[in-house]
């Protein structure tokens, strides 16, 4: 260690022959090298983001052929006074909260189960991961056919055991829980994968030491696993949170926001406003409010985790 420090603070003559000095040139070079990537980023992310912000301050329906008209915060004001906006916020928050919470609990339980090897665990692990490999649109389509009241396989099974036909996607009480269940089925494996990988990286001696101290498994999980897995949980839950806020595909393929508006998530509403009525400016304002909501939720989660530390 000392030797290293000495060599780092030693005379410049120690540099290998031909090596460049730390002048301004390499910095310029760095930017030159990075410029294609930066230009790419500017073209694909920064420009559209700024453009959508500008559009959100205008009144513009693309099919009219008329130019956008600047109206300031008019769209935001209209949105905040629009009952369908607040309904979509409520639906989105319920969807996100329940789906991510259930996915986390299931994934954590499954990861604990697979933490120690057992016969056939590799095959079962592969099977558990399979839903994650299916495109969400296909999952939505499968759900729609499977849950169809008359011909769907789920209702046929229910009837076979003497239970009544159930409108999973057509009932206002069941539609949102059904969508949550579909999301849980598809995305629990994702969290399971992250948590299992993190668990398998835990130092074995910590667990052994706790056992020697006479700690029970629940105590080990609570006092050792959870604190040590904190960052893996944070990453996994954050990714799922962000993804759940964007839920659109299964809504499109199953309920299209209905029945009534009980599954009308913010992403669905943005699509509806933007691509059915083509009021692009209103949809842009909607998107910005969704982004703000996501940032608030994600930030508060990160802060809570930091405070606990």
């Amino acid at each position: 260690m000392t030797a290293t420090l000495q060599s780092e603070s030693g005379p410049r003559a120690a540099m290998p022959p031909g090596a460049r000095r730390g002048t301004r040139r390499p910095r310029v070079g760095r930017f030159v090298v990075m410029s294609p990537g930066l230009l790419f980023l500017a073209a694909l992310a920064i420009y559209p983001t700024i453009y959508s912000l500008v559009i959100s301050l205008t009144k513009w329906r693309v099919t009219t052929g008329e130019a956008p008209e600047f109206i300031g915060l008019g769209n935001y004001g209209a949105l905040l006074a629009d009952p369908s906006f607040w309904n979509s916020v409520r639906v989105t928050l319920v969807f996100v909260a329940f789906s991510v919470l259930i996915e986390f609990l299931l994934a954590f339980g499954l990861a604990l189960l697979f933490f120690r090897n057992f016969p056939g665990d590799k095959v079962m692990r592969a099977l558990i991961l399979m839903p994650m490999l299916v495109a969400p649109v296909v999952v939505g389509l499968l759900a729609r056919f499977s849950l169809e009241p008359t011909f769907g396989v789920v209702n046929q099974l229910l009837r076979a055991v003497g239970l009544p036909t159930t409108e999973f996607l057509g009932s206002p009480a069941l539609a949102l829980p059904t969508l949550i269940a579909i999301d849980v089925w598809q995305w629990t494996p994702f969290l399971f994968l992250i948590l299992l990988a993190a668990m398998q990286g835990l130092p074995e001696e910590v667990i052994e030491a706790s056992k020697l101290d006479g700690a029970s498994w629940p105590r080990i999980i609570w006092h050792q696993f959870l604190p040590l897995l904190k960052y893996a949980i944070l990453v996994g839950v954050l990714l799922r949170l962000i993804d759940s806020f964007r839920v659109y595909d299964i809504v499109f393929m199953t309920t299209r926001g209905g029945p009534i508006d009980v599954t009308s998530t913010m992403s669905w509403q943005i699509y509806d406003v933007g691509f059915r009525s083509f009021t692009i400016s209103y949809a842009a304002a909607y998107s910005w409010l969704l982004l703000i909501l996501v940032l608030i939720v994600v930030n508060s989660l990160i802060r809570r985790m930091s405070v606990r530390e």
Binding site: T63, T64, S84, S171, P172, G257, G258, P259, I260, D261, D272, R276, S277, T279
Partner: peptide, 22 residues
């Protein structure tokens, strides 16, 4: 009229609520 698609979408939600007895 030019706003027919929006009209349809909006009315559809209320008809859905009526038919479900909500």
């Amino acid at each position: 009229f030019p706003g027919e698609e929006i009209w349809e979408t909006t009315l559809s939600t209320e008809l859905s609520a009526i038919s479900l007895g909500e």
